[in-house]
Simulated scan of single mutants.
Amino acid sequence: MTTASEPGPARPDPSLSAIISERRHLINLAYRLLGSLADAEDVVQETYTRWYAMSREQQEAIESPGAWLTRVAGRICLDLLGSARARRERYVGEWIPEPLPDRTEWISGRPGASTLDPADRVTLDESVNMAFLVVLESMTPAERVAFILHDVFRYSFAEVADIVGRTPAACRQLASSARRRIRAAQSPATATAQQAGIVRDFKQAWEAKDIDALIGLLDPGATAISDGGGLVNAALRPIEGSERIARYAIDIADRVPNMTILERTVNGQPGLVAQQDGVTVTVMAFDVAGDRITRIWAVRNPDKLRPWTAGQPH
Score class of each variant (00 low, 15 high):
25 H>E: 11
310 A>D: 13
217 L>F: 06
221 G>V: 01
146 A>F: 08
253 A>F: 12
75 R>I: 13
86 A>R: 12
138 S>E: 15
288 V>A: 02
262 L>R: 07
130 M>F: 12
188 P>H: 04
74 G>K: 09
281 V>K: 12
38 A>K: 07
147 F>I: 00
252 I>F: 09
298 A>G: 15
309 T>Q: 14
15 S>V: 09
128 V>L: 03
243 E>S: 07
250 I>M: 05
104 T>M: 07
232 V>E: 06
173 Q>V: 01
262 L>C: 05
13 D>Y: 08
249 A>V: 02
64 S>I: 06
296 I>D: 02
8 G>H: 12
215 I>F: 04
130 M>K: 03
68 W>G: 03
47 T>G: 07
47 T>Y: 13
8 G>N: 10
151 D>W: 02
258 N>M: 08
31 Y>A: 04
241 G>H: 11
233 N>A: 13
249 A>F: 06
288 V>L: 04
310 A>K: 14
56 R>D: 15
51 W>T: 00
160 V>H: 05
151 D>R: 08
31 Y>E: 02
251 D>Y: 02
171 C>P: 10
137 E>C: 13
6 E>R: 05
211 I>G: 04
25 H>C: 06
47 T>V: 11
248 Y>I: 00
243 E>Q: 14
18 A>H: 06
282 T>S: 13
176 S>M: 05
